[in-house]
Design a binder for these strands. Structure first.
Length: 363
DNA sequence: GAGCCGTGGCA
DNA sequence: TTGCCAAGGCT
C-alpha cells in the first residue's frame, strides 16, 4: 500500500470507499442539515427511510418552514429524540425570516440556531460549503482516540477539546468536506467500536493504538447509569359503537414532549402479590378518577391487555395496560381527544403506544 | 458536569 | 435478558 500523510491516505480511501447515501447526491445545505440532525445518535440504516420520506414531503427549506408542526412530528415518528424535529422546524423558520431562506454560511449565525451544536455546525458547513471546520462526533472521537492512543475518557469536555485540536490540525484546506466525512466513514465501516478491521484500514500504519495493541481497549468511555424503573397504569378506553379511543397529548416539555399517548399515570406501589381482581378493580377506579372524560361514566367492561416494558435512554417504563369499554364518546376537553381509527393515524405516538395499538386494535 | 431526551439492533 | 451502542444538543 502506498503511504502518505494521515489526511492524504484517509481522503484517498474515502473517495474509493464512500457509500452512496441519499444525502450525498448533491451538496444542498438543507438536505445535509436534515440528514445531520436525523443522524444524531441514530444509525445510518435507520435514518435512510426517514430521510427519503421527509425529503419527499419537505423537499425544500421553505416547504418545511411552511409546514404544520404536528405534521413534522408525524414524519419523525419512530426516530426518537423528538426535540430534534421541533428545533429543526423552528430553526428553518428562523432561516426564512432572518436569512432569506438560505442556510447561513457564517459559523456563528448557523451555530446559534436551535438544535445546532458544535458538531452539527461543523458538519453542515464543511460538507455543504467545504468550510475548514472540525466535525467531531462519536466516530471521530473513537478514530482519533485510537490513531493517537488517547487514554482519557472521550466523553469529557477536556478530551473532546484535545480531539478538536487534532482534527483542526489535520484539516486540509479545500478538502474539508471529504476529510470530515472520511473520518466518520472510517469509524462506521472499519474503525468500529467492537472489532475494528485494522487489516483493511488505510491509516493502520499511522495508528498508535494498533502499534501498542490497544485498538479494542480504546476509546475509554465512562459508563452510563442504568435506566430507572417507572411503574405506570394505562387505560385504553374505547367506545362500543364505532371503536373510537381516548387519547391525550403529553406536556410540551419532557419525555415524548408534545406527542400523544394512551392515558396513563403512576401506578400505586407495585405489589405483585395482589390478586388479579384486586389490581383490576383498582385500575378501574383509577381510570374513572384520573381520566377526566370518563368521570361519572360507567365502564361497560374492563380487562387487562398485558404488561408492556419499554426502555428509553434513561428510564424504563413498566406499564400495565387495560382495555375499558364505554358506550359512546363522552364530552372531552384538551389535552384529551376521542379519535376513530382513521383519525388516529394522523397523530404521533411514542413507539410503546404504537405497539399496543398494533397488538390490540384492528388496523 | 451531569441528567435529560428515543429507538432498535446486536452480542 | 441485559448492556452497549449510533453522524448530539439543551439545561
Amino acid at each position: 500500500m502506498r503511504t502518505g500523510t494521515i489526511t492524504g491516505d484517509l481522503v484517498r480511501w474515502y473517495e474509493a470507499a464512500r457509500r452512496d447515501l441519499p444525502w450525498r447526491l448533491d451538496s444542498d445545505p438543507y438536505r445535509i442539515w436534515v440528514s445531520e440532525v436525523m443522524l444524531q445518535q441514530t444509525r445510518v440504516e435507520a435514518v435512510i427511510p426517514y430521510f427519503e420520506r421527509f425529503m419527499g414531503r419537505f423537499p425544500t427549506l421553505d416547504s418545511l418552514a411552511a409546514a404544520d408542526g404536528d405534521e413534522v412530528d408525524k414524519f419523525w415518528e419512530g426516530l426518537g429524540y423528538y426535540s430534534r424535529a421541533r428545533n429543526l422546524h423552528s430553526a428553518v423558520r428562523e432561516v426564512c425570516e432572518r436569512y432569506e431562506g438560505t442556510v447561513p454560511a457564517s459559523y456563528d449565525d448557523f451555530r446559534s440556531l436551535p438544535g445546532v451544536g458544535d458538531y452539527t455546525a461543523g458538519a453542515v458547513l464543511s460538507i455543504a460549503y467545504n468550510q475548514p471546520l472540525p466535525a467531531v462526533d462519536g466516530n471521530v472521537l473513537r478514530v482519533i482516540a485510537r490513531l493517537f492512543a488517547i487514554p482519557d475518557d472521550v466523553m469529557s469536555q477536556k478530551t473532546r477539546k484535545t480531539v478538536v485540536g487534532i482534527v483542526s490540525g489535520l484539516l486540509p484546506v479545500g478538502r474539508a468536506s471529504a476529510f470530515n466525512q472520511a473520518l466518520m466513514e472510517l469509524g462506521a465501516l472499519l474503525c468500529m467500536p467492537k472489532s475494528p478491521h485494522c487489516a483493511e484500514c488505510p491509516v493502520a500504519h499511522h495508528c498508535a493504538a494498533r502499534q501498542r495493541g490497544l485498538q479494542t481497549s480504546l476509546p475509554v468511555r465512562a459508563r452510563k447509569s442504568a435506566p430507572k424503573d417507572v411503574h405506570l397504569t394505562a387505560v385504553l378506553a374505547q367506545t362500543a359503537d364505532d371503536g373510537s379511543i381516548l387519547v391525550r397529548r403529553r406536556p410540551a416539555r419532557g419525555l415524548l414532549a408534545g406527542l400523544w399517548e394512551i392515558p396513563n399515570w403512576a401506578a400505586p406501589e407495585p405489589n405483585s402479590v395482589d390478586l388479579e381482581t384486586t389490581v383490576l378493580s383498582a385500575a378501574r377506579s383509577q381510570a374513572l378518577s384520573n381520566m377526566e372524560p370518563l368521570r361519572g361514566r360507567r365502564l361497560e367492561e374492563m380487562h387487562c391487555l398485558g404488561q408492556y416494558t419499554h426502555t428509553f435512554s434513561h428510564r424504563r417504563w413498566i406499564m400495565s395496560v387495560y382495555h375499558a369499554q364505554v358506550d359512546a364518546r363522552s364530552h372531552c376537553r384538551e389535552p384529551y381527544r376521542w379519535v376513530d381509527r382513521q383519525e388516529r393515524t394522523m397523530y404521533t405516538f411514542g413507539q410503546v403506544f404504537n405497539k399496543i395499538f398494533r397488538e390490540h386494535l384492528a388496523q
